[in-house]
């Protein structure tokens, strides 16, 4: 999370478990609404969080499942705009979703459609920026959503 966040960070640690993803979503919604994040931006963040946690659980491997997932959330204010940052840190296999190609053409028929592989596309669609680093054996993904602040 950026040290320039205007508001104190909200933080949560969960297990890499699908049941804890619901708890994380509730935490995010509460933290975002406490910062007056507009509901449509909360939905975007919520989508990113759900898909990011699903990727950790499905693809992170045994190391991911045996490690805690750390979440942080904060909001920054700049001239005419506000930016929410959500960080997801996990101990799974190194994977950078910010560079993964999700812009392949959509399948043109139901027969060609695959049930999987849409999570990264949704994360990219719902976020304004993704940044990633891998350090000390952990993935650190920061998801950014920005909006015009009329105040």
């Amino acid at each position: 999370m950026s040290p320039s966040a205007d508001q104190p960070l909200a933080a949560l640690t969960i297990r890499a478990d699908i049941r804890d993803a619901r708890r994380a979503s509730s935490w995010l919604e509460s933290a975002a609404l406490a910062e007056n994040v507009p509901p449509e931006q909360v939905v975007r963040l919520d989508h990113c969080l759900d898909e990011a946690l699903a990727n950790v659980i499905r693809h992170g491997g045994p190391a991911a499942l045996s490690s805690a997932v750390h979440l942080q959330f904060g909001v920054r204010r700049s001239a005419g705009a506000r930016t929410a940052e959500l960080s997801v840190s996990d101990g799974g296999v190194a994977f950078d979703p910010s560079t993964h190609d999700v812009f392949a053409p959509h399948p043109t028929s139901l027969a060609d459609a695959m049930p999987g592989g849409l999570g990264l596309r949704l994360i990219r669609h719902c976020s304004d920026n993704l940044s990633y680093r891998h350090s000390q054996g952990r993935n650190h993904l920061t998801i950014t959503v920005s909006w015009v602040d009329p105040a």
Binding site: V43, A111, L118, R121
Partner: peptide, 18 residues
């Protein structure tokens, strides 16, 4: 709220019906 997994469920179902 519709996740990618939910969309996958819909795709599987549509394929099955088809």
């Amino acid at each position: 709220f519709l996740s990618s997994m939910a969309i996958g469920v819909l795709i599987k179902g549509a394929k099955s019906v088809q």
